[in-house]
């Protein structure tokens, strides 16, 4: 719930285009006259300039530009059977959980289900299948009577509408989450950004919008 705290300077954007020392040296020879800088320093300047350019370009695209505005949600007291049914019907892997006042209080993903159904090694679906094949019956039994509030991850990691795309990508990379609810200042749900939304995102604002 504190996207401002996301660590900056992520390694995702530290790697410049494949520029080599000999490229830099050759570029210095292309420019007539004596350049009062070593090739090493020039490369360093180039690396930082590249990072700033990537941030500027990808920073122009915000969460609101790529989010899916129509979000399926559940309440804290929604039966898990219903939650699972919704996720199955809509082919979604996670739903935000809303409080009575419609603020986001948590999120339920496949991981939350799997981890409570005895999946070993955390959350891999194949470990669940492996358990199943040992003949233990329905693994959902322990949570059959429970509600969304029982298994949700709370508080949910959320972002604001003006969060730049590259920050969201950093957030996904750091936390391993696959979707993040987009909220306004009052924590009211505005939309959701999933990994699929990022894949569809235009690199620059004014490019072709996300296929909706």
């Amino acid at each position: 719930m504190a996207p401002e705290n996301t660590p900056s300077g992520n390694k995702l954007f530290m790697v410049p285009a494949d520029i080599s020392d000999s490229d830099i040296f050759a570029a210095m020879k292309d420019i007539p006259g004596y350049l009062d800088i070593t090739p090493g320093d020039l490369k360093e300047v180039f690396r930082f300039a590249y990072k700033h350019a990537v941030e500027r370009i990808s920073g122009a695209v915000k969460a609101r530009d790529i989010m899916t505005a129509e979000v399926y949600t559940v309440r804290k007291n929604t039966d898990l059977k219903e939650v699972a049914g919704l996720m199955a019907d809509r082919r979604i892997s996670g739903v935000p959980v809303l409080a009575e006042d419609k603020t986001v209080i948590g999120i339920i993903s496949e991981k939350d289900f799997l981890s409570r159904m005895g999946a070993q090694d955390g959350i891999h679906v194949m470990s669940l299948i492996a358990e199943c094949m040992k003949g233990k019956g329905c693994l959902a039994a322990p949570i059959r009577q429970k509600t969304a509030g029982d298994i949700m991850t709370s508080p949910a990691v959320t972002v604001t509408e003006d969060m730049p795309l590259f920050r969201i990508m950093e957030l996904f990379a750091e936390t391993g989450i696959n979707r993040v609810p987009v909220v306004d200042r009052a924590n009211l749900l505005k939309g959701i950004v999933s990994r699929a939304d990022i894949i569809r995102a235009p690199l620059l604002r004014g490019g072709t919008g996300p296929a909706s």
Binding site: D21, F25, K29, T38
Partner: peptide, 14 residues
């Protein structure tokens, strides 16, 4: 040291 010395300038520069 970590890097090489810059290239030599051409004759016109000299």
């Amino acid at each position: 040291g970590t890097t090489q010395s810059p290239p030599r300038v051409n004759m016109s520069e000299i």
